[in-house]
């Protein structure tokens, strides 16, 4: 049976190859190298700082943050998880992964929030942006690993760039959604009192969209973590590398250690950012209240919102 490709085949592969190798790489190499600079700077700074903090100090600090934004239970969970991570011997890798994730999320936020705001303000821009985001979310990361290696080389920074491409869509989408779902009458009221569009954005739209934007940030964070192993394919380090190496050597033990580290890190970050995003009154007394209650003998810590006794 005849099919079109018997007679003629579109040489898409050679076109793309010549476009990237023959035009993009030689002409824009400097541009792509320059893009890496801020990423590398932030990553190295973060990695150095995280590695320099002693494990117990870091674990307690994160647990306290978890307590302050969420609950005592999460603080306890954080402390135990980080202890396990250290006990199975992947602490250094975990800190590297954390530095990578934080860098990726930081740049996602820097790029994604303004894009989301722009999309919320202009329907045309949103229409144009939507297919791009669809492509970013559906295309398998392996497809763009090769051009990234060609343009950026191998190493940590290219790994983070791949992570950014993968993790960027949710924060753009949810920023857009958050700003669009601010009630129209509030925007109208803000304009009626003489606000400029910028004042409407900062005084009304962004504060009211904050919960949705935080949900987007949470999604972005989770996607970035899930890229840890794939980024290791092009030279990124950390837990991803542990898993990838284990895979290569059929070393199930090492892969499990790396995998467990990623899962625990993901759970801690997810719970903390979720708690940041929801402004429901804390069910258990916050860190400060509990501290104060230690000095007020006889009075149990109570939840400040309700004044009810916490069991």
């Amino acid at each position: 049976m005849w099919q079109p490709s018997d007679t003629f085949e579109i040489p898409l592969d050679t076109w793309v190859e010549s476009a990237i190798k023959g035009w993009l790489v030689p002409n824009f190499r400097d541009v792509f190298q320059a893009i890496q600079v801020p990423i590398t700077v932030v990553l190295e700074g973060l990695d150095m700082a995280l590695q320099a903090i002693p494990m117990p100090v870091f674990a307690i600090a994160v647990a306290l943050v978890a307590w302050a934004v969420a609950s005592r239970g999460l603080a306890l969970f954080t402390l135990i998880s980080l202890a396990i991570v250290d006990l199975i011997g992947v602490w250094t890798q975990t800190m590297t992964t954390l530095a990578m994730i934080l860098t990726a999320v930081l740049f996602c936020a820097i790029v994604g929030v303004p894009l989301g705001i722009a999309a919320a303000r202009r329907d045309g821009f949103e229409k144009g942006l939507r297919p791009v985001l669809d492509i970013m979310q559906t295309i398998p990361p392996f497809v763009y690993l090769v051009p990234i290696v060609m343009l950026f080389g191998v190493g940590m920074a290219p790994g983070i760039i791949a992570t950014i491409i993968f993790a960027l869509p949710p924060i753009i989408r949810l920023t857009n959604l958050g700003i669009r779902s601010v009630p129209e009458d509030l925007i109208e009221a803000a304009f009626a009192f003489g606000s400029s569009p910028r004042q409407v954005l900062w005084e009304v739209q962004l504060p009211l969209a904050l919960r949705t934007i935080m949900a987007g940030l949470n999604q972005t964070l989770m996607l970035a973590l899930s890229m840890a192993v794939i980024a290791a394919l092009i030279g990124a380090g950390g837990l991803g590398l542990t898993v990838y190496t284990g895979l290569g050597r059929l070393d199930v033990g090492a892969a499990t250690e790396g995998g467990l580290g990623i899962v625990l890190l993901a759970m801690i970050l997810d719970r903390i950012t979720q708690a940041l995003g929801s402004d429901s009154p804390t069910k258990t007394p916050g860190f400060l209240e509990t501290l104060k209650s230690f000095f007020r003998l006889g009075t149990p810590a109570t939840s400040p919102e309700t004044g009810r006794r916490v069991s």
Partner: peptide, 30 residues
């Protein structure tokens, strides 16, 4: 809009993320 004409809305249109005083201050703030 800032100085001469103010508006009161059917469904109040108060900013839920601001305190009562901040709501009342809004026109002066902008």
């Amino acid at each position: 809009r800032l100085d001469k004409v103010a508006m009161v809305f059917q469904h109040f249109a108060l900013f839920p993320h601001k305190s009562v005083r901040e709501n009342v201050e809004y026109g002066l703030k902008v």
